[in-house]
Design a protein around this nucleic acid. Structure first.
Lengths: 126, 126
DNA sequence: AGCCGGAAAGTTATAACATAACGTTCAAAG
DNA sequence: CTTTGAACGTTATGTTATAACTTTCCGGCT
């Protein structure tokens, strides 16, 4: 089930809600119910294969093989595509701020909404 | 209505869901319905008086009088309290990364979950 | 083989979060 | 004193998520 959910998510660069995934997989498994999907997604997130987009209540397949740091997710509000990367500098900066107030970070949520390069140049050509 | 919602949110440092706010205000306005709350929250967010915690589907009153930058929200997973600040350096770093791929940021979601200083020292004393 | 135990998935039901669509009120502009 | 539009009320429903319990299946054990 995890493998099937991951396949569905990998088949598209646009994030999908758990219910989108459910609708996809119901074509093959008509009786599939939400908890199954959420369990698979939880396991995949645990293994770092999938990221949850908190600001969209949606999920994307991880685009990197391995993570050193927390991912930064770049969401195009125009085409919907999500890019992923990470920045040691950024994490260092965050840790620095955290340190001053004695805050011990456990999990970072960094999502940036805007217009991606492709949509930006498409627009400027128009 | 906006003022009442803001009062409720300001009365506590822990984020509240829209339905938490609704339950609070129903004591005074028994017939209050969700759309009224969501409308007030939308207007307050527009005015920068309230922030939405995307990773919790919840809302907190803004703790700063004015923002230069996008807020960084620090969420204690122990006591639930949210602190807020901002960092020009961090935003600069993000813009730098964005620039390389031609991404034009419009909205930043930066939320860090971890243990706050107070809970950390409480634990170490125990 | 037959049994046991645990992990994954199925199943049912409901909780929690959010908004569409339309109606009402009321005050300020014309 | 009518028009108009913003705020709010109301009803209904859509969307996201999980609690709680059951079943299935596989692998080890006797």
């Amino acid at each position: 089930m995890q493998a099937q959910v991951l396949d569905v998510l990998r088949s598209c660069r646009v994030p999908m809600s758990a219910y989108d995934v459910l609708r996809c997989l119901r074509e093959e498994h008509p009786r599939l119910a939400p908890p199954t999907i959420y369990r698979a997604l939880a396991a995949l997130m645990e293994r770092g294969k999938v990221h949850r987009l908190e600001s969209l209540n949606a999920f994307v397949a991880c685009q990197c093989e391995r993570h050193r740091d927390a991912p930064i997710l770049w969401v195009c509000t125009d085409c919907g595509v999500v890019e992923e990367n990470s920045s040691t500098d950024l994490l260092t900066a965050l840790s620095g701020i955290a340190g001053k107030s004695g805050f011990a970070p456990m999990r970072h949520v960094i999502e940036v909404h805007g217009r991606c390069g492709a949509c930006g140049s498409a627009e400027s050509r128009a």
